[in-house]
Nucleic acid binder design. Structure first.
Lengths: 394, 394
DNA sequence: TCTCCTGGTCGAATCGATTCGAGGCATGCC
DNA sequence: GGCATGCCTCGAATCGATTCGACCAGGAGA
């Protein structure tokens, strides 16, 4: 039994008694056509149940698929669970949608995969541009594969690659502002909970050696921003931007240490170290067995977290430990998420324009398609003071 | 300056000294070919920087785009913010990915839109199947448009449409189980916070009249499941599945009412009403001015929420009101989300297999493509008792 | 030695639309 | 009345690959 195939433009033209080219004109609207003829064609189309030109034919001819591949780093589920990702994706999809472009979801895969295999879609799917949303590492199989195919790429939050548009926020500026705020409040013992430095899945105390291994661009910038103002008394690397990780980090940084004022130790507390080419390795990193939380044996009075979820976890940990926020401990986040379940607390946080970031990614993709020169866009951030920061305890 | 276009299969064949058809064979692997010839073709391809057949040509020929359109109801941002959506989407994308299919994200639009316009992608994008993830209403412009185009459709969580595969969970069974659990604990004054009944954005007390207007399928089933076991003493309709809405609903249901045992009023408290064709309108709906929370003027001892986020909001509201959970108030949710920030509480909740639901949607789409008969799949749910339910207060 | 078979290669048709240049017809102007 | 001018319409080429049947050569079997 032959299944009746969908009618084609040719059949419609035939029924309408016109040529295929005329019928095409009737639909595309490009080129002159008598309203009468057009009407006859549309009438014939309706009669045959023809719902417009087959996208496949049109795409082949035009060489454009109207599809933007969006490569979601890591696992899809994890990417989507990240509340930071949502507005970005939303801004991206909206902006592209306004220009008639669709978003094809492509799962990325962890970079350090030995087989360097990428999702088959990257090799075979039709797309006019690709957007790598969560940045690319030093060497990225996905990026390479796309280049090989000749698919233009837009990078979100990653390292700069010559000739490739890049969209990011001013990460360093953001963490620097947070630290500055804390310094102004009199804090000197500032600890830090960082975003992952790479895709290794590692978590735990962050020492100088590890610091040199940072691969993810936003993390690197946020680390730099902090260190542009102060050398943290302790730093803890999270495995991912998750509440649980923030809690674990804060517990590690805070637990079992007496509160108190800066020890009169050899190290000048909270010395503001301007970032620069300081001797690496000269840094007195804590030894293996040493308490990670505090080189001087005393509790930090503030925690700078690289993300709001990490900060939220830190806040919960503080509550668990019976610490008052901000009286005993100040906490800053990064992202500017709305986290009503932290009520009555509102995070002091560096707000980044997430939806605008998505929109900027979309515009970059569109510009690329239009043949414009690739640009590097850096969006501004803004520290918004909430209820989780206050004067340093005396 | 003529931009050098990407090399085509024809150029590769030419360079390799074979015919186009042979070159095609070398890539597709279909049909017999000498390893030697194949090697020559691949060599030529490498030399030209040819990264495999152009998807557009292949797709036109095969009539398949390898793309599954996933229509996300409402706004994209809202859909993504819903933690229920994430695992479903993840299961869907994974399952489709294993079969080489990509997911094209398509924003749905609110049904009651007067212009009945749909996203242009629905009319013009290439796709082999479409999945309507968040169900379709009684009449749905999106669904109609897809049918007109001849794109086969899979429905997730919606009404049954003959000839269209449907995937859902046993909603009625779920809420019934939750209520049964509460009844077994001795609760008789059970209130309810419901999912939206339609896309109107309405929220507030739910009376009998409104109950008849329910359009969204899962909501209807969950309402039915509750009423199969008990007639709630009060019901509050949320505008969306959000923590804030749950909090508002719970405050409305609980605020300002004295705790206490069932009033010896004319109405038998907690009468278990079996669902059935009871006289509509005979229902003693609360009058306009009446306290919505409680027909007998007393606080409910349990709240059945249609989703975990609503339940979480209710829990926060209870904490705000100084009510102990579960000593003063029991709360049940629906979905089985992991909500660590509710710690130390763990919701008693009806767990639904979210990722499996996504996978089932994917399988349904694949089966449809393979020409198999459309099926209705209903996945089971399971009540998991947490710390938010306990014996009714005496 | 002839025929049959089979594995490998090639030609040509096909998928469904877009687009460019040519041509036809009517109008307007000289 | 003839010619230039537009406005529509049409034919044909094109996008890049897949696939079916034809064809050819070489080996096996009779």
């Amino acid at each position: 039994m032959a299944a009746a195939r969908r009618p084609t433009l040719a059949r419609v033209a035939e029924l309408a008694g016109v040529s295929v080219s005329t019928a095409s004109l009737a639909f595309s609207g490009a080129g002159p056509i008598t309203p009468d003829t057009r009407g006859r064609v549309l009438q014939a189309a309706r009669q045959l149940g023809y719902a417009g030109p087959n996208p496949l034919g049109r795409q082949l001819r035009s060489g454009r698929s109207g599809i933007v591949g969006v490569v979601i780093g890591d696992q899809l589920a994890r990417a989507f669970s990240d509340p930071v990702a949502i507005p970005v994706l939303d801004g991206l999809v909206s902006t592209l949608g306004e220009h008639g472009l669709g978003v094809l979801l492509i799962p990325g895969v962890p970079s350090p995969d030995p087989s360097r295999s990428v999702d088959p879609l990257i090799e075979t799917a039709a797309m006019d541009v690709a957007v790598l949303v969560w940045g690319i590492g030093a060497s990225d199989a996905t990026f390479d594969a796309l280049c090989r195919r000749g698919v233009p790429v837009v990078i979100g939050e990653g390292r700069r690659v010559p000739g490739v548009p890049l969209v990011g926020v001013d990460d360093a500026e953001g963490t620097a502002a947070a630290v500055e705020h804390l310094l102004a409040l009199g804090h000197s013992r500032i600890a830090e909970i960082t975003l992952p430095l790479d895709q290794s899945g590692r978590s735990g105390p962050l020492d100088g050696a590890r610091l040199g291994q940072v691969q993810r661009a936003p993390t690197a910038h946020r680390l730099r921003g902090v260190r542009a103002r102060v050398e943290p008394v302790a730093s803890w690397e999270a495995e991912a931007s998750l509440v649980e990780q923030g809690r674990a980090g804060a517990l590690a940084l805070l637990a079992g240490l007496p509160a108190g004022r800066p020890a009169p130790g050899p190290e000048p507390a909270g010395r503001p170290a301007v970032a620069g080419p300081t001797e690496p390795g000269a840094e007195p990193a804590p030894g293996p067995g040493e308490a990670i939380a505090d080189r001087a044996g005393m509790r930090p009075t503030a925690i700078v977290a690289h993300s709001d979820l990490l900060a939220a976890g830190a806040l919960l940990a503080a509550r668990d430990l019976g610490l008052r926020v901000p009286e005993d401990l100040s906490i800053t986040g990064f992202d500017g998420l709305d986290l009503p379940w932290l009520a009555p607390d509102v995070l002091t946080s560096v707000h980044q324009p997430l939806e605008e970031k998505g929109a900027a990614l979309g515009r970059a993709a569109i510009n690329l398609l239009a043949g414009e020169e690739p640009e590097v866009v850096t969006l501004g951030v803004r520290l918004v003071v909430g209820s989780t920061t206050g004067p340093a305890p005396r």
